[in-house]
Design a protein around this nucleic acid. Structure first.
Lengths: 336, 336
DNA sequence: AAAAAGTACGCAAACGATGCCAATAATATT
DNA sequence: AATATTATTGGCATCGTTTGCGTACTTTTT
């Protein structure tokens, strides 16, 4: 039904061989200028486009890369994607976006799907639920270029881009301390994520620097990354139920920030809440009444860096053995 | 570098012909059970996967569909995408997401990109800036299956899914009238979008039903869909500057809702705002202090319906000439 | 005038998988 | 015993494109 014009069609129409047409289209020097013109004109007129699938098969390159993130409906990730796309388009790559919804199974399926030779490389941010990495390791061993961003793992060496999560959290926690808060809770993401550990480290270091002791009862994890609102609510409920309630909460991720504020509103609608600060790249939180200070990550830039790294891996003639880990600084946006 | 095992490799290893291996893998009845087992085992052991690119070339089917939306960082669209994916996966299709960012040029480029025989069909929601439809029309004429959702056009006949925009707006406007608001402004999207017209119709009909006259000075358009915060701000500024200021604003889209609230906060931070109601599928707006009532669209369902329609078009043996236009009901969520 | 070089093109083999058409051997039918 | 049928496999062309090699033909060089 949908049958676009091919090189052969042009060849027949112009009484040439397919090879000549192909070479004319790629502006080869061994084709007569006159012939080139005829081919180019005909191609133009009939809206000829190279079949990317045939090209992929021939060149064993698809000029497309896969992204896997937990979800696109998250400002941080959608900004990263925009950054990735900006580089991708300029370098002639296609971008295929895939969502894990923070589920291990979905991540495995999607990565497999992308991998079977239909992408030239992968940009990965791990799902919150993933504890086993063999599916990714296998692809890496097969030689598929992979770059990790944001939520990285270290089961093998490759390029990575992250925010300076530790410093960002440290600064934000310090800001809360400076404002006089004494009991600062930390609402964390799934415990095995890199970002969780780094952010927790920053939090603890800030406390230590101020001779405040880290109290484990003030730290709660969300094992599904806040995907289940119940787990966030449980954590908040727990904080509120404490004898020595926290007077501030640091929320360690974008999605959790929203979940946390929702839970607070639901659980203590008329009470005075603890102050809330956290990681977020969402503009909407600006709108919230209790001016929500936040740690902002350079998401767009992270996408650009990651994609540049991936292109370097893909287009490298020789196997790459030296890898870079770029860490980007965060920004503390103070409000109210 | 990254060289997966092929059917030929298996054939050589097992001293068979490629065709036999192919048939064994697809469980053909004419292959000996013993041979099948040998092939299947070898394939399993060596992690053989069919090369989808070769398959696409051969079958002239890619088993992937393209989505084009203005942006994924919008709850409505990300929910639609989730709906699309749910059907796509169950039917063995891949989904390629592409963003127009409400730009005409970007839409043209991305659609072209998707179309060149690398997708079997297209799910399209028009960009706000697009006034010329020849790029889509051309593809349709070439026989590429296309389904429109949400922001539809009628330059040619095909399946469409939309919300009942008129009724939804009418109900929401009626609710504002019932609350006693007298001057209800309407902040609209780009004027040539289908949703803009339909929503405006609902608004006007509600006014008419209540013997209130529609005042054109209470209607403002955002030609870039709110992508430029300035245009939203200008509209709000205009409303505020009126001698007879509106006491309520109906906002006709998700992105505009956020823009509108942001602008209101900026422009009259301490004043009492007009009441705001509008289309939105965002949970975050729950968190806003002035309880934000909204028209919610069945986004997930819309995605499911759209994808089912597309699959029907793709897999139909004969050219489809009878088309459906499904309209889904919206829900009015009242708050405060 | 013969050899060398240059110009412009065609042939055929890939890339990986499939499916039609034989081909062979083994078994069944009359 | 001759023929028909079945079971199992291989050969080849094909999808659309690229590319190494070969081949006419023309032009230049000595």
């Amino acid at each position: 039904m949908f049958k676009p014009i091919t090189i052969k069609d042009i060849a027949i129409a112009l009484d040439l061989s397919p090879s000549t047409v192909s070479r004319a289209l790629s502006d080869s020097y061994e084709i007569n200028t006159e012939t080139k013109k005829r081919v180019l004109n005909y191609a133009e007129e009939h809206n000829y486009k190279k079949n990317p699938i045939a090209l992929s098969l021939r060149q064993r390159r698809s000029y497309s890369v896969g992204i896997i993130v937990c979800e696109v409906a998250n400002n941080f990730f959608s900004q990263v994607i925009d950054g990735i796309e900006s580089i991708a388009y300029s370098k002639g790559y296609h971008v295929i976006i895939s969502q894990s919804h923070d589920s291990y199974e979905r991540e495995v399926i999607n990565i497999q799907h992308l991998a079977n030779r239909s992408v030239d490389g992968l940009l990965v941010s791990m799902s919150a639920e993933t504890k086993d990495f063999t599916h990714i390791l296998k692809l890496h061993k097969q030689g598929l270029p992979i770059v990790f961003f944001d939520r990285v793992i270290s089961v093998f060496d490759t390029h990575t881009v992250t925010s300076n999560n530790k410093q960002g959290t440290k600064n934000a926690t310090q800001a809360l301390i400076d404002k006089g808060f004494k009991r600062i809770a930390h609402l964390a993401n799934a415990p095995h994520l890199s970002i969780t550990k780094e952010r927790l480290d920053g939090y603890k270091e800030a406390l230590r620097d101020n001779n405040m002791e880290a109290d484990d009862s003030l730290i709660r994890y969300c094992h599904h990354g806040g995907r289940l609102q119940q787990e966030v609510e449980d954590a908040i409920k727990y904080f509120i139920s404490l004898d020595e309630k926290p007077d501030a909460i640091f929320v360690a991720s974008d999605r959790l920030s929203i979940g946390c504020l929702t839970a607070l509103k639901k659980l203590s609608p008329n009470q005075i809440h603890p102050a809330v600060t956290g990681f977020s790249n969402s503009d909407i939180l600006d709108l919230l009444q209790p001016g929500f200070s936040c740690v902002r990550q350079p998401a767009f830039e992270m996408g650009r860096v990651a994609m540049n790294m991936l292109v370097q891996l893909i287009e490298s003639k020789h196997p790459v053995t030296e890898f870079e880990s770029i860490v980007l600084d965060t920004e503390l946006i103070k409000r109210k």
